[in-house]
Amino acid sequence: MDANAPVVEPHTRPGEAGAARPQVTELRLTAFRKHRGAVLALGPMTLFAGASGSGKSSALQAYEALALLGCGHDLEAAFPEAADCVPEGARADRQGRRGFRIGCTVDGPAGPVRLDLAVQAVPRLEVVGERLTAGGRTLLTTALRDPARPEVEAAWHTAGAAGVTRGRLPADRLGTALLPLHVAGRTPAQLRVLAAAEQVVLALRSVFACDPWPQRMRKPVAAGPGRLRRGCDNLAEVLHRTRSECGKRHARLAAAARVGCAGEVTDLRVEELGNGTVRALLARGGTCADTPLGRLGEGELRYLALALVLLTGPGVLSVDQVAEVPAAYQSLTVLADGFDRCLDPAQARELVGLAAEMCARGHIRLAGAVFDASCARGVDGVSVVDLVP
């Protein structure tokens, strides 16, 4: 760390009045699966496009892994198949170790903050190095000095006579997420470190990874608190809650259903079955019988589930956000792999339009993967990143 590096005064901290919402604006896949040296810019709505094997899902996997680490999960939870994350053809070092590197940039009240992470996958999963930088200054570095110990040596910027504070952190966690437990926050330098770390954690914790499973959405579900799960299998439960809480958004969802579902659709409603379960139906109107969602095709079910995700928020989606920070200062990011999977062109266009509309309003950010990007090219507010195998 350079004690003579230019000093960047701390900006408004996350959660304070006037603060911008922290958001991930760049994903770096330095060495991860099929990616080497990839730098992917992320806007309010970004879709990764490309053929099978181009690395679309891998990019979203890296983003989700960073989000899990930001939430305090360990490496095994973030990388359940860590050995597969090592780039193809990567050679082991003299000790037989192989790993991968990822990172991101988070913009917000503390300015652009970079997080870079090096992970050893073989022979044992652990962090071998982490770096947090902002304004040309390194705020945190960690390094695995003794493989026999489950700890990394850490040093964070504190100014003063020593310039840095040294300590040990667990080798299976993200050091940045642990800094608030180790930095007192009494001096301007300590506040600068905390502001940068909190900005990164706040952005990473505001992530909802979504991949609807139609086969699990067909059966009635138990009525409950109505927080949508990753696979959207409890869609009927969530509709049961949101239908009464926000009539305007429910009407927008019904309008989307009219475009994306076959036949006449007048509304989406929920039926209580008397045994503590509920099921969702498409209301047909007139003399036509309502259609249970279980009878719909996979494309219709995925379409409805993704539309519901786009029209709800952190109070409905199962997101581990920072409870002490007001929702107005948090930016929810949806990760949607296979965004156009099973959809016909009309459904894909309508869903892209709905997503662009919600992202433009600032309600959400979206990073997704599509096989065919024709539904998104030329749409205002949508960035398409073409990946090549």
Rank of each mutant, 00 (worst) to 15 (best):
A257P: 07
L317H: 12
A19M: 07
A223P: 02
D93R: 01
D93C: 04
R341D: 15
P220A: 03
A19G: 14
T142E: 08
L75M: 08
S383N: 12
F208C: 08
L235K: 07
T158Q: 08
R28T: 15
V221N: 02
G55E: 02
R252C: 12
R98V: 15
F100N: 07
R284M: 08
P147H: 14
A280E: 04
R229F: 06
V322A: 11
P180F: 12
T46W: 01
F208G: 05
L228W: 03
V128A: 14
R124Q: 15
A369W: 06
A62L: 02
P170G: 07
A255I: 11
T46P: 00
R101S: 15
T158F: 07
A31Q: 06
G99P: 05
G18N: 14
L296W: 03
V370A: 08
L169Y: 13
G37K: 03
R279S: 06
A197T: 00
A196C: 13
A373L: 04
G231H: 11
I102G: 10
N234G: 09
V238E: 03
G362F: 05
A67K: 00
M217G: 09
L29W: 11
A77T: 10
T30H: 10
P326T: 00
A209R: 05
L253M: 12
L140W: 06
V379N: 01
D267A: 13
V278Y: 00
E324L: 04
V221C: 03
K56L: 13
N275R: 02
A197P: 00
N234Q: 06
F339Q: 02
G129Y: 00
R252K: 13
L351H: 11
A373M: 06
R149Y: 08
V278H: 00
A283N: 04
G299A: 07
R229Y: 03
M358D: 05
L281M: 07
R94F: 11
D2F: 06
S244T: 10
V164F: 12
Y303S: 09
D107M: 04
T133Y: 04
V152W: 01
N275L: 01
L202W: 07
L366Y: 04
V128E: 14
S52T: 13
S57P: 00
L191N: 12
L139G: 08
E130L: 04
E153T: 15
V106G: 03
P180H: 08
E271P: 04
G313Q: 05
A161K: 00
L202D: 09
Y63F: 09
C104K: 06
R284V: 08
D107I: 05
G247V: 11
G37T: 12
R284Q: 13
L235H: 10
A195W: 05
D74F: 10
T12R: 11
V7N: 09
R36C: 10
A159I: 02
A20I: 14
E237M: 11
G226L: 02
G55C: 04
V322L: 09
R101Q: 15
A184E: 13
A346R: 12
L354G: 10
G135E: 11
K34M: 13
G37W: 09
E245Q: 11
G160T: 05
F339V: 10
H182P: 01
L343A: 03
L132W: 08
C246K: 02
C210T: 08
E357C: 10
L75E: 08
A41P: 13
R13M: 15
V8A: 14
T12Q: 11
N275E: 08
V370G: 04
